[in-house]
Design a protein around this nucleic acid. Structure first.
Lengths: 232, 232
DNA sequence: ATATTTTGAATGAGTGTTCAGCAAATATGT
DNA sequence: ACATATTTGCTGAACACTCATTCAAAATAT
C-alpha cells in the first residue's frame, strides 16, 4: 500500500517533467543521476520557472515540481534559493560566453567576418530562445540591487566589449569611416541588447527580424565591408 | 507618555522622507494633503523602493516608511499592492509620453529636427535618472509574465514607434539613403533602450556618453542630415 | 456631530529552510 | 553467491518567518 502510493507519485512526476529532464536524456535517471546532472536539471527547471512566472513568483516549490522532485531537493543540492539562482545565472553566462567564443573561432581572421559572426551568434537558435531571454531579463530586473547578479549579467563582459571595440576600430581604419569608434561600439552593443529586450517582450518580433535589424545597422555603419548577405 | 512617543515617531518619519515628499512641497502637508497628492507621494516612494531594493524585495512596509506614513496606508489609497504598482508604472509611462510629446512640439516641423529632439529627450535629466531607470527595469523584468505590465511598458508605445518610422522614412527620401527603414528604425529604438539598460546597470556610463552614442548612430545613419552638434 | 483620513496591531496565507527518516546503491564480510 | 552494513540521494512534514491585508479605534477635518 505504502509502496504503491510511492510508485504512483513518482509516475506523476515523470510525466510533469518536460524540458527540465531533456538535458539528462543521455544520463542515467532516478537515483543514478549524478550530482552534477541533478544540479543541471534543477537549473533548467529554474529557467523554466523564471520564464513562466517571473523572478518574484519563482518559488522553490515551482522549481522542484518542474524538475519532478520533492520539496527539499534544492536545499540539498544547492545550499539556498539564492545560490540556486546564482548558479543558474552563472550557467547562462557560461553558455553565452562559450557561444560567442566558438563563433569567433569559426569566423577566421578577417575582422569583418568576425564582427558579422559576433552579431549573428547573438541571435542563434540555442541562445536566443524566448525561455532564456525571459530568464535573462528577470535577472536584469534584479541586477541593480544585487552586486552578484550585476557582475554576472554585466550585460556582456569586459572581454566581449573589448573585442567589439577592437573590431570596429580595425574596420574603421580599413574603410576610412569617419565615426568615433567608442560611441559606435556602444550603440551597436546596446542595439543588440535592446533587440533582445524586445524579443522577450513578445510584440510579434522574431529572431530573424531582430537579426535583420542588427544587420541593417552593420550595413549603415560599415558600408564598404558588408552586404545584407554577409561580409564582402 | 503615549503622546510623546507618537510625536517622536512622526518626527522620525519626517526626517526619513526625502525624494518622496519633494513632490508635495507646494502642497499642504500632513493631514491636509489631498487624496491625489497622497497617491503621488506613495507612487514616488514606490519608485524609490523599486530602485533601492528591486521589485522582488519591495514591500508595502518599505513604501509606507519611505513616504513617512503608517503601514495600512497603501491599502487605503490604493486597493492593493498590485494596484499601487500598476499606478506607479502608469505614472512613469504618462511622464515619458508627455516628455517626448513636448519635445516633438518644440522641435518645429523639419523631420531632422524632430528626430534629433526625440533622441535627445530620452536622455533628459528629468526622465533619465538612475532612480527611474532602475524602476523601469524592475518592471521590464516582470513584464513577460504580466500582461498588464507588458502593455504599459510596451517599451515605448505604438504611436511612438510609428512616429519614429515615419521620420526615418522621410529622411531616407530626403537624403536618398539606401537602408531598409523598418529595420533601421527598430535598430535605432532598440539601441536607445539598450543604452537605458546599460545606464541602469552602472558601469560608469553617463547620460552624456549614452546620448553621444545615440548621436553617433544618427550621424552614421543620416550623414546628410546631422552633425555632432545637431541637425543641419 | 459627522465624515474623512490615518494608525498600528492582529490575521492568515505563503515560502524558505531544517531535519529525521526512508530507500537505493555500494561496500564489506562470510 | 548471499547477507549485512554503510553510504548517498532523496523525501515531506514541521517550523519560523515575512508580508499583504483587514479593521477597530484614534486623529483630524468639515
Amino acid at each position: 500500500m505504502h509502496l504503491r502510493l510511492k510508485k504512483n507519485s513518482t509516475a506523476v512526476r515523470m510525466k510533469l517533467t518536460s524540458a527540465a529532464q531533456d538535458a539528462t536524456d543521455t544520463e542515467k535517471r532516478g537515483r543514478k543521476a549524478s550530482k552534477e546532472t541533478r544540479r543541471q536539471q534543477l537549473i533548467e527547471a529554474t529557467i523554466d520557472s523564471l520564464a513562466k512566472r517571473g523572478y518574484s513568483e519563482t518559488t522553490l516549490a515551482d522549481v522542484a515540481d518542474g524538475a519532478g522532485l520533492s520539496r527539499g531537493i534544492v536545499n540539498f543540492h544547492f545550499e539556498s534559493k539564492e545560490k540556486l539562482l546564482i548558479a543558474t545565472l552563472q550557467s547562462m553566462a557560461d553558455e553565452y560566453a562559450a557561444n560567442w567564443g566558438a563563433a569567433l573561432e569559426k569566423a577566421g581572421d578577417r575582422a569583418a567576418a568576425q564582427l558579422w559572426a559576433l552579431v549573428a551568434c547573438d541571435f542563434d537558435r540555442k541562445i536566443c530562445t524566448k525561455r532564456k531571454l525571459a530568464a535573462w531579463c528577470a535577472f536584469w530586473g534584479e541586477a541593480k540591487s544585487r552586486p552578484t547578479y550585476q557582475a554576472l549579467c554585466g550585460a556582456r563582459d569586459v572581454k566581449y566589449q573589448e573585442i567589439f571595440l577592437a573590431l570596429c576600430q580595425t574596420l574603421k581604419d580599413e574603410g576610412g569611416y569617419a565615426y568615433e569608434p567608442e560611441g559606435m561600439t556602444l550603440a551597436l552593443c546596446a542595439s543588440m541588447e535592446g533587440l533582445w529586450l524586445r524579443l522577450m517582450m513578445g510584440d510579434g518580433l522574431t529572431r530573424e527580424k531582430a537579426h535583420a535589424a542588427a544587420v541593417e545597422y552593420l550595413l549603415v555603419a560599415f558600408p564598404r565591408h558588408f552586404t545584407r548577405e554577409g561580409p564582402k
